[in-house]
């Protein structure tokens, strides 16, 4: 039993007690603060002391207890903040979590999304049509003469005829242009829409070609639509997609369903490759024969149309050199497009 007169000694002990571990902390608690500890002992001894001293002793013991308690609390806080306090093997936030499943859209969807959002800003809406088309919508109405090279067997997937419709010519659409025809048959000008979709070419699958790809076609038919309007739309679009200050050129080309027809090239420099002109889209003024095919008077209305390949734009942006990567769906590839 510690004598009350030892207050100063105990005070020194408490002050100098080393509290650098969980065990030491527990020892300290047991020694000073537990019910059978020194301080309780000493408090119990007050009764035996000289009554005149009791008040003073009580005060001193209380302050001793405060000291011990505060040392204990501080040390405890200190130890637990060092996270050495009751540490288990898995109490280690540097361990890896269960990997989360991250969803993402395909890079082609991402490019398409960007293209759409630009045209929405330019006042275009969106339209769609079937991938399996009839000859009229895919060719005839689009001013393809019967013996046009674009109708060549090796380019177009024809659908095998069946007994029900032995004379019907169905094809997998070779472009999204038939949607123009469907749209113009339904809706009178002004018409301002883009038509994204999957199109087919009867080609074998190699690094450079696939049997299908995705196109975005655009159409604007109204009073007094001119080639200048078309050019401006295309430049605005390219500037939004590839950045302002883009170097471009527009050169004449040929499509049966537009005239004048043109193609737009942009100057493309990436990495170590030397710069070169890269074709990004084809366009033109809607051919009067196409308007006539859908009962629109070409003298009253004019229009422009354009079309671009989503694969081509995606591949050049990310320097993808093999088109099959877009359809293999290798996770190590897809993960690069969060």
């Amino acid at each position: 039993m510690t004598e009350i007169s030892d207050i100063d000694t105990v005070k020194k002990e408490i002050t100098s007690f080393s509290l650098d571990s969980v065990d030491a902390l527990e020892a300290f608690r047991l020694k000073y603060l537990s019910r059978k500890g020194i301080i309780s002992d000493m408090l119990a001894g007050i009764g035996k002391a000289d009554p005149t001293e009791r008040a003073r002793l009580g005060k001193e013991l209380n302050s001793l207890k405060k000291l011990a308690t505060s040392r204990f609390q501080e040390a405890k806080a200190e130890l637990s903040s060092q996270s050495t306090y009751k540490k288990s093997a898995t109490d280690d936030p540097t361990l890896p979590p269960v990997p989360p499943q991250i969803g993402s859209t395909h890079p082609l969807s991402q490019t398409l999304e960007e293209i759409k959002s630009i045209f929405y800003r330019l006042g275009f809406t969106i339209a769609d049509g079937p991938e399996l088309e009839d000859d009229f919508h895919n060719f005839t109405a689009l001013n393809f003469p019967p013996e046009h090279p674009a109708r060549d067997m090796q380019d177009t997937f024809f659908i095998r005829k069946d007994e029900q419709n032995p004379s019907r010519n169905l094809v997998l659409r070779t472009h999204t242009s038939p949607v123009q025809i469907r749209l113009l048959k339904e809706q009178k000008p002004p018409v301002r829409a883009i038509m994204p979709g999957r199109v087919y070419r009867n080609e074998s699958i190699t690094a450079k070609s696939y049997c299908l790809f995705h196109q975005v076609e655009g159409l604007y038919v109204d009073n007094n639509v001119s080639l200048a309007d078309l050019k401006h739309t295309l430049i605005t679009f390219a500037g939004h997609l590839f950045g302002k200050g883009l170097k471009y050129r527009i050169r004449p080309s040929f499509f049966p369903f537009t005239e004048p027809s043109l193609e737009m090239d942009i100057w493309w420099e990436t990495g170590n490759r030397p710069g070169q002109w890269m074709e990004i889209l084809g366009a033109g003024m809607v051919h009067p024969n196409v308007l006539k095919a859908v009962d629109i008077d070409p003298e009253r209305y004019t229009g422009f149309a354009f079309g671009m390949g989503v694969e081509r734009i995606t591949m050049s942006r990310y320097e993808i050199d093999d088109i099959r990567l877009l359809y293999d769906n290798d996770l190590r590839f897809l993960n690069q497009f969060p």
């Binding site: 929405y120 301002r192 043109l262």
Partner: peptide
């Protein structure tokens, strides 16, 4: 088209403002 291609499409000036038909909802 013959006139335009020899004139050069790149010589066609941009219109001063873009005209947008009444935009339709998506």
């Amino acid at each position: 088209e013959e006139v335009a291609r020899i004139f050069d499409y790149n010589n066609i000036p941009d219109p001063e403002r873009i005209t947008i038909a009444q935009p339709e909802p998506v």
